[in-house]
Write a protein that binds this DNA or RNA. Structure first.
Length: 1061
RNA sequence: GGGCCCGUAGCAUAGCCCGGUGGUGCGCCCGGCUGAUAACCGGGAGGUCAUGUGUUCGAAUCACAUCGGGCCCA
């Protein structure tokens, strides 16, 4: 054991602990220690390699680390490889920016090969940066060998999974409408679309009914550019539609509009007059034909026969008729398939109109909006703008469009039932994350478009024959090598694109150019991280994962993608339990974002407060599944708590070291035998803290098993602050100061040692650095070398004494109350009081106060502390009239009764009323019967007695002074001032002094001199000490002399360091 | 527009499942302690429990609606 720095130096401690872990390879040793334990397979949700972590990422890893450390301490063989998500558009976009590219053409010119290399380097560099940041947080995962989605072995896992999908008939090529990013020129998944408000045109358009001049169907749309792809109008089969003859500017038109919406539409179109001349239901409308108002401008439209169809999704809004462009909308597409409508899409991959769109050709779709409006001419019934939620590419923020293209799909919609079944089998924290949130999301599951027309990703391992059209899915690299006859140097584009496979038809198969949706990468993580399919042993023994935890945004992300892929490949969920955690928000509850300027980085918190502080803060601040509002005050407060832990730990060290204390041990390894063997005979405060720390361990164990990290960490903080620092350490301080051999002292050392060791074990998952530093200093030679190699403590019932804990609660309540009463009586704690009396409501309180009486006396600085049940004879009661009750009862005589009450014997009245009787006041004619409710009673305390309520009673403190008490009070004042002067002189605790005191007041001087000279001498370690009255005698030359005013008495205190004794 | 979560003193939170006098920490004011001391401890002030309606003898707690925030979806 060594003495330690006087305040908590987080950075220093954490640096040295991390250095130690690194040098000693502690993490590896801990893993080795539990190699034979039960397996606990954890899969790290791979962060995307952006190159920096934010508070949310830090919180995520801290939650993981805390729980995994707990499982390791419980003896589990924890398998926890870190992972990184390294492919995909975000990186492509960053690399494009670095290279100054703006489109795919730039990339093709630059060369796919070199471009891929840039992406690879970018991802790898970021991965290393992030690993360092995570390690800095004290996170113990396998960072030396993380799973990486760009590794060939990982890519194989994705290939293998796709092959499984093909075997199961779940893979399909389809011409469908997909979300499309025109900038990235690729399909994107539903999960990649971000929604926010966008201002768009809101237009009402008249579609001319075929063969009838001046008759129109009126539709509404926010995407004018989709009109060139219109093929139909949808009506609701059950709505009524009106044939309206409307007049505008003297011209008459016939319009078809849903009946209920006629007026609002006509108002928008500024029609002056109208009359309804006919009605048809949607069903009757069905089959009407019309032509496009853009038929002259868009040649494609001339070739299409347009008709009215019915659809249930039509709502009674706008015009009650929906323009249908199956090439540009999901509902439209489905309807088009059902009604056998032509699916046209005159828009290219970059969102420009093709030649089919005639005069719009080569215009970007959004830029075409005003042109379309212009060209609609009189067909434009009304034009306005609307702000509505619109989807955007989650990486480049470009508004998406819907585009019908040929893509590869996993038929997830067919798996819905199976997935729902699996979700029910998983244990969710909190329960509703699975039963409500995830369940609802899966119910909406659509087929999963897994193909992307990009570069940096896992190539889709499908080869198709150019002559016969057959396709083949490749499951492994070896299979590809065998099929192509060429060694695969890199399974990425463009290398794999060059490999051809001979087809059975004699033709040659080429790879489809697409790569996987990046969400498919991480979807296979749970088996890819186990080296599958290259090796199957780990998969067989470990899979599925015992536990995963990620943020709530991963409901639609990783929780779902994994479930989908796993259900296809293995027919079951890939995880047994899932903790869904919240988001890190700023103090106002807003998302942290660069544009709001409210971003707090983990680095800045670590730098100013330390890693353990950050960890304990995020773990205790909110329930894992609630959002975390980051608050600097809260962080600083946590630093304070850590400082108290540090103080509690360092406080006994000097004494232990001075005494050469070493805890009793068995075979060189510390164990709890000493405490265990003596538990029942320990002094009450020792037994109490032992019980408390076991209760703590029990609670923390229970909380951790339910992922209640906030409860567990709050319990630990509460224990440190309330039980250890504010109570136990206060109670045992004096025992630490005993000199020489003293059994009470040794027992205090042993108890405190036991308590700290137990506390360190249960706190180590939360605050791994400080606990390691403390443990390293406290351990004895045979002990395991790291706190993280200890065995978890679940709280031993044998070492708990609940009655004692409850009695101590009472005493603590007494302590607060007596301090309160003293404060009311303006008697400082240094001054002893004659008596404290507790008037208790229950025998338990009496029992607690008497059995722990020495603690009560000590805390209250009272000669006597006693508890009585019922009443204390020195308390009197004064009756006070309740006029509200007296008025009705006594009418005009009420004032008379009031005076009688005020002068009555309150004590007698109270005992009568308390006994349920009435009380007679006055005599003869003026005799009144007082009943309960007509009076209240106020305490009448004797002079010098002050009271305060406590749990289950009231505390009375008699602060009146006696000469004896007064002498001690002054003596304590003198001692304290000498101690302060010693400190000013920088004297060591063990140094001796010579001292003198001059007290002007002869009475006080005499009292102190007679009964306290020797006591003071001992306390201040003086070899000589004289008390003088009046002026200080000349000739005493002391190093320090100071005038003091002690409660109005002037004193001069002086002292010198004594020569060596 | 839909699903889920959240809204409690200046700030951060407990309590809500299972209704019965709203606790705690920070900050603020006052005090104590002085061998953990540029530390530590006590006391006090401070609340329309987001709003409204309902159920109930009684609602922070249950129900419904509204408003605000977050995540997800259409």
């Amino acid at each position: 054991m060594k003495e330690v720095s006087s305040s908590y130096q987080a950075l220093e401690i954490e640096d040295s602990v991390q250095q130690y872990w690194k040098e000693e390879n502690t993490y590896e040793k801990v893993k080795e220690l539990h190699r034979d334990g039960d397996d606990f397979f954890f899969v790290d949700g791979p962060p995307y390699t952006t190159g920096h972590i934010h508070l949310g990422t830090a919180w995520n890893k801290i939650i993981k680390d805390c729980l995994l450390r707990y499982h390791r301490l419980c003896g589990k063989n924890v398998i926890a490889r870190a992972g990184y998500d390294m492919h995909g558009l975000p990186i492509e976009v960053r690399v494009e920016q670095m290279l100054g590219f703006s489109s795919k053409k730039d990339i093709e010119r630059f060369g796919i090969g070199p471009f891929i290399e840039r992406c690879r380097t970018f991802a790898a560099t970021n991965k290393d940066i992030m690993s360092e940041q995570f390690k800095r947080l004290g996170v113990w995962l396998d960072f030396d060998d993380p799973y990486q989605t760009m590794h060939p072995g990982y890519i194989e896992a994705a290939w293998w999974t796709l092959k499984r999908a093909d075997e199961e008939g779940m893979l399909e090529r389809g011409f469908r409408v997909v979300n499309w990013c025109p900038r990235c020129a690729t399909a994107i998944a539903d999960a990649e679309v971000e929604y926010w408000d966008e201002r768009d045109p809101s237009i009402f358009v008249k579609f001319p009914v075929e063969g009838v001049d001046g008759e129109y169907l009126v539709i509404w749309t926010t995407t004018p550019w989709t009109l060139p792809a219109n093929v139909a109008v949808a009506v609701h089969p059950d709505f009524l539609y009106a044939r309206v003859e409307a007049v505008r500017d003297g011209k008459k038109e016939v319009l078809w509009i849903a009946e209920d919406l006629v007026e609002s539409v006509l108002r928008k179109g500024r029609y002056q007059d109208f009359s309804i001349t006919g009605k048809r239901s949607g069903k009757e409308m069905c089959g009407m034909t019309f032509h496009s108002p853009l038929r002259e401008q868009v040649p494609l439209q001339k070739e299409i026969s347009h008709r009215v169809v019915t659809a249930d999704f039509v709502t009674m809004e706008n015009t009650g008729m929906v323009h249908i462009a199956p090439g540009h909308g999901w509902d439209d597409y489905l309807l088009g398939c059902r009604e056998n409508l032509p699916i046209i899409c005159p828009v290219d991959i970059q969102g420009h109109f093709t030649g089919e769109a005639g005069m719009l050709s080569s215009l970007f779709v959004k830029d075409a909006d005003p042109v379309v409006l212009q060209e609609l001419g009189h067909h434009l019934l009304a034009s306005d703008q609307v702000v509505h939620r619109y989807g955007h590419c989650w990486r480049c923020k470009t508004p998406i469009i819907y585009r019908a293209t040929s893509q590869w799909f996993l038929k997830a919609s067919l798996l819905k039932e199976r997935m729902l079944e699996e979700v029910k089998k998983v244990t969710w924290y909190p329960e509703w994350a699975g039963s409500a949130r995830f369940y609802d999301w899966i119910k909406e599951a659509r087929d999963w478009c897994i193909s992307r027309q990009r570069y940096w990703g896992i190539p889709i391992p499908i080869w198709t024959c150019s002559s016969c059209g057959k396709h083949r899915v490749i499951g492994t690299i070896r299979e590809l090598e065998e099929a192509s006859g060429v060694p695969v140097q890199d399974p990425h584009r463009p290398w794999v694109d060059q490999l051809t496979i001979p087809c059975s038809c004699g033709g040659s198969m080429l790879r489809v150019e697409d790569i996987f949706d990046v969400w498919f990468d991480s979807a296979v993580a749970s088996w890819a991280t186990l080296g599958f399919p290259a090796r199957a042993d780990a998969l067989e023994s470990l899979w599925p994962a015992d536990f995963i935890t990620e943020g709530q945004d991963q409901t639609r992300g990783w929780f779902y993608s994994q479930l989908g892929a796993s259900t296809i490949a293995f027919g079951r969920a890939p995880y047994r339990s899932v903790l869904m955690h919240g988001f890190a928000l700023d103090a106002e509850g807003r998302k942290m974002s660069k544009s709001l300027g409210n971003v707090v980085t983990p680095e800045e918190v670590i730098k100013s407060q330390g890693v353990d502080v950050l960890r304990l803060y995020v773990l205790s601040q909110s329930a894992p599944w609630d959002d975390l509002r980051f608050n600097w005050d809260g962080v600083k407060n946590m630093h304070r708590a850590m400082n108290i832990l540090w103080n509690v730990y360092r406080f006994p060290l000097p004494y232990m070291i001075l005494d050469g204390f070493s805890p009793r041990s068995g075979d060189g390894t510390w164990n709890d035998e000493f405490i265990r063997g003596r538990f029942s005979s320990l002094s009450p405060e020792d037994r109490w803290i032992v019980s408390r720390v076991n209760t703590l361990a029990l609670q923390v164990t229970g909380d951790l098993s339910e992922c209640q990290l906030h409860r567990a960490s709050r319990a630990i903080i509460g224990f440190i602050l309330e039980d250890l620092s504010r109570w136990y350490v206060q109670l045992v301080r004096e025992r630490m100061w005993l000199e020489g051999e003293a059994p009470e002292k040794t027992q205090a050392y042993e108890t405190l040692y036991y308590t700290l060791r137990t506390l360190l074990t249960v706190a180590s998952p939360f605050i791994p650095h400080i606990t390691e530093a403390m443990y390293r200093n406290l351990q004895i030679p045979g002990d395991p070398e790291s706190v993280h190699m200890l065995q978890w403590c679940t709280g031993d019932p044998v070492l708990r004494d609940e009655n004692l804990e409850s009695a101590m609660d009472t005493v603590r309540s007494f302590d607060e109350a007596q301090a309160n009463a003293r404060q009311a009586g303006k008697r400082k704690l240094r001054w002893p009081v004659r008596e404290c009396v507790v008037v208790a409501e229950t025998p338990n309180v009496v029992e607690a106060i008497s059995s722990l009486n020495h603690i009560c006396r000590d805390r209250a600085n009272a000669r006597v502390v006693r508890a009585v049940c019922g009443t204390w004879e020195r308390i009197g009661w004064r009756a006070e009239p309740v006029m509200k009750a007296l008025g009705p009862a006594f009418g005009k005589k009420a004032p008379l009764v009031k005076d009688l009450i005020l002068n009555a014997d309150g004590n007698a009245m109270k005992s009568a009323l308390d006994a349920g009787e009435t009380f007679i006041l006055g005599q003869g004619e003026g005799c009144f019967e007082i009943s309960p409710g007509q009076v209240t009673f106020a305490q009448q305390l004797p002079e010098g007695v002050f009271s305060a309520p406590m749990q289950g009673g009231i505390v009375y403190v008699d602060v009146a002074l006696t000469p004896d008490l007064e002498a001690e009070g002054y003596a304590r004042e003198i001692i304290r001032r000498f101690q302060e002067m010693r400190r000013q002189m920088d004297l060591k605790v063990e140094d001796f002094i010579t001292a003198d005191a001059c007290i002007k007041d002869p009475r006080v001087c005499k009292a102190v001199e007679e009964s306290w000279r020797e006591g003071i001498m001992e306390e201040i370690r003086a070899v000589s000490f004289e008390v003088h009255g009046g002026e200080c005698p000349a000739g005493t030359h002391h190093a320090v002399e100071k005038e003091w005013d002690v409660e109005g008495i002037a004193m001069t205190l002086s002292l010198s360091r004594a020569s060596q004794q």
